[in-house]
Design a protein around this nucleic acid. Sequence first.
DNA 1: TATGAATGAGCATTCATTCAT
DNA 2: AATGAATGAATGCTCATTCAT
Lengths: 216, 216, 216, 216
Amino acid sequence: MTGSTGPRGRIDKRQAILDAAFTVFARRGYAQTCVQEIAEVAGAAKPTVYNHFQDKEALFLEAMAAAGETVMARNLAIVDDIHSPKGDLGPLLERIAHQLAQSCCEERSRALRALTYAEVNHFPNLLETVYGRTANRLAEALAGKLAQLSLAGRLRTCDPAAASEQFLALLTAPMETRSRLGTRKVPAAEAKAVAKTAVDTFLRAYGTTTTNRKAA
Amino acid sequence: MTGSTGPRGRIDKRQAILDAAFTVFARRGYAQTCVQEIAEVAGAAKPTVYNHFQDKEALFLEAMAAAGETVMARNLAIVDDIHSPKGDLGPLLERIAHQLAQSCCEERSRALRALTYAEVNHFPNLLETVYGRTANRLAEALAGKLAQLSLAGRLRTCDPAAASEQFLALLTAPMETRSRLGTRKVPAAEAKAVAKTAVDTFLRAYGTTTTNRKAA
Amino acid sequence: MTGSTGPRGRIDKRQAILDAAFTVFARRGYAQTCVQEIAEVAGAAKPTVYNHFQDKEALFLEAMAAAGETVMARNLAIVDDIHSPKGDLGPLLERIAHQLAQSCCEERSRALRALTYAEVNHFPNLLETVYGRTANRLAEALAGKLAQLSLAGRLRTCDPAAASEQFLALLTAPMETRSRLGTRKVPAAEAKAVAKTAVDTFLRAYGTTTTNRKAA
Amino acid sequence: MTGSTGPRGRIDKRQAILDAAFTVFARRGYAQTCVQEIAEVAGAAKPTVYNHFQDKEALFLEAMAAAGETVMARNLAIVDDIHSPKGDLGPLLERIAHQLAQSCCEERSRALRALTYAEVNHFPNLLETVYGRTANRLAEALAGKLAQLSLAGRLRTCDPAAASEQFLALLTAPMETRSRLGTRKVPAAEAKAVAKTAVDTFLRAYGTTTTNRKAA
DNA sequence: TATGAATGAGCATTCATTCAT
DNA sequence: AATGAATGAATGCTCATTCAT
């Protein structure tokens, strides 16, 4: 017995609306999205949407924040796997890089970026609620890990923030191009190659002799 | 003598509308833009807009293509300045990098990217008419230059396309972050620092001993 | 007690819009009619019109069909009164003719004809949905009655369809002229005279000796 | 020498516009017609139309009047052929009837009727300038001829106006139906049959023994 | 005279939002 | 809480008409 459907129903409905909202916003953009379609996708009536959210703007911001939360959690989990390995650093970083590449190409992630980009003029809050909590947060987490590797002597002494920024740059920018702004699915092999090339360049720039790169 | 203003009126009006259109589309996004505002900014009446362009979509696409043309021309001109210098490669690349960084942060450039990103689902043509003619074209031009440097022994043997892709990645992605998706003007000093760091990493990864980097 | 006004509201509104639509279309013609005026006449807001009908075209077609339905019902009822009388056929036919003359001069009927005539090029469907269900249907019903009279020996043997066609022609065409295409109300006396002359000619052409016309 | 093309050109242009106007008005109806299309069909520019005619309304009225003139002339010519024949009246009337049937089915004629019908509310003048000069005028001319036949003893004593009215009614109303309001071309054979049936009924009602009908 | 260009006014249609149930 | 119905406010687009050449 899961209990009465009363309070549970509400929560589910609210969540369903949030999910539907992000889906439709992602598909059409903010202005082209009509609340009617969100309601339909959520399996609710239009007024129900307004019972849960103040208006279209609020719904958009909440849906974006929620999606940002999800994306960030996944990315942080990936980065959190970084540790100072006993052997080569390369394979570890490549695995991480590949996972991040996959993650940033996934639909929700792409939509989040596109919507933020498109609407940041109209909703400056997105910078904090979304960008700050995803891109920035990820860069910080990665910087932390890189600092540890640096202290452990596995990377040369450097500004971890800059290193993190460049690691992500070498990863995300090429993936963006390869996916044609997200309109094309990047084959796993290509994503792996991008990750490998990124790590290769990264280690050439930031590695130490103890990094034990193959090339060394 | 600039000639009579007679026939000029037409061309100027059309151009004025195109310019106004890009300005307003950049400010508001495609759907939030109303033709009325474009007309006002262009100093014309609404029907005049429709005399020159089929409809809002066509106007958007033409305005985007024109802006893409402009942006591309500037970027290509910057890259075209690359040559095999007698002395250090570093200063040359840093100058190029700085100019590109400035260029990609400039308003038109940013708006073009944001609008393409936001509307590529609705107007798949943008991929060709805008993205292909700006980002891709720039990457190709840079790859050509890097290939020459490689042949000249100033860069290690490498895949010039990959090198180009990474050079641009190290430049544009950090600038994107620093400018907070274009909502903040990046100080010249910061842009210069980004350029320097990018070139530093690039040369560590792709330079040769004859590159004569300071660090060497 | 007519019951709660709750669910009625919907049906009434829709009907009110249909009625208003026909009124305004009749007054102005299809293209000159603006939905705004229909809404006003119906006591509704413009979007309400669009909640009930797909678009202006659909509204027009439904309003025409509904009006056709009404007109047809009345005309069929009139014709249905024809029977084989014991005495003279003349008075009966004259009564019927007079009623039909009145009916086809009435505003709704005239408007239906005029609108069908005017828009049949743009809405070929009108031929079926309106013309077929009014003019044609009436002619068929009358033909049936005339066939019965013929079998009863009250009319000479003839093609009932042709007789029906001519009976109606003798009635409607003159009424059309007399009413100046519907811009003038035909006095009852004049309508009666038209009916009488029509029946007179009809019986001269189709009557038998047992018809017992005065002239006989 | 036909002289300079100056004044001639103007006249031709004006006529071309009038013709084009009627063509397009007939095709689309008054309100749906845009001056642009008239200009195109006439091979002129829009302002040229306004150089010749005050505005759209004036153009419409003139085009209608001109078309009415043409139609009337043809119909009067047909009726004018009626004379008191030596032999049977039937064949003569049938020939006349057939010609009138053809004439009233012809495109210009139909369009004139439909447009008058549709716009008589908006342009009451049409009643005089068009209807009066076509339908009424035709009925009068025919009445004159029938009066002569009556005096000549070839038709029974009667009200010639009523006889004329009914003759035309028996002709035009069925043709209207058969042509599905002008959307279908009535085959010559069918038109001939309608004419024959009309004349048959007419002579049964208005003929005399000297009419020498076959049936007699 | 004829015309390319420009415009004021208007209209169908959509949509976010609110009532009444 | 959820919804069918209703609406005020926009917005894209068209068209009759007028300038300026």
